[in-house]
Design a protein around this nucleic acid. Sequence first.
DNA 1: TACCAGGTTTGCA
DNA 2: TGCAAACATGGT
Length: 272
Amino acid sequence: MNSGEIFRMYKDAESGIFRVFSGDKVLFLQETGEETFSFSCSPDEFEKYWSRFFDLETDYAGLYKKALRSGPYIADCAASSYGVRVLNQDLFEMMISFIISQQKRIPEIRKCIEALCARFGEKKCLNGFEYHAFPDAKAIAAAGPDGVKGLSLGYRERYIYETAVKYVADDFIKSPAFRALSFDEAKAYLKQYCGIGEKVANCICLFALGYKDAFPIDVHIKDILHREFNVGDDNYRTLSDAVFTKAAADRFADFAGAKGIIQQWIFAHEIK
DNA sequence: TACCAGGTTTGCA
DNA sequence: TGCAAACATGGT
């Protein structure tokens, strides 16, 4: 919830109930015991959506044990990130959310996303609880290039509008064929959208498309790869993304296929 | 005040 | 192909 992979999940301070928003859905979660939770959805909706959303088919326990044996730093990250899963979120929501994320801190990202939802998201109601869905691409596109003004998006306004317009017209990205692409193919396809570069494309692949080997390189990860894994000298921040990507592949070769989960545990640990 | 943020685009070698 | 500057806005 606080590890920068989902921006619309909140804990109600009074009741302790978690509210999880995804696309046009909302889910209420309550901890009922030691690692047990009640879900507000029907068993059918759980099977059809939330089970995959929470990535319940992936073996995190095995990865966790492996991480604990992988040197003190990774072990620390795994231990302090116990319970952090890499979710399978809505594609368009991740595209827009991570376009917004560039050059912003997490609290500001949340604010921008909520503002976007308030303006363009369909108003919905579940059990008396009113909320705004994440906007449909059509709603953003229909409002025109000036429709996204006044939301503190800055230069990202153009990226968001153009991405919404392109997405509306893009039948391929909504087809099963897109989901069948390889990781590299999907990433390259996403980068054709304005505002989606290497890092954001990796985030989308990891958080929406299930490519658990995606390894987004951002300023935090650069700092960590330098500090903990001896990548680069004092000018390491000027090194290209490719250098960090290769370094990560080398350092985390043991986790091939699931590097993105390790990345997320590292990230969650560092921003705590 | 100066610097920086889960970067990307643009323009120029 | 690769590099540096420009890009809005808000927080520290």
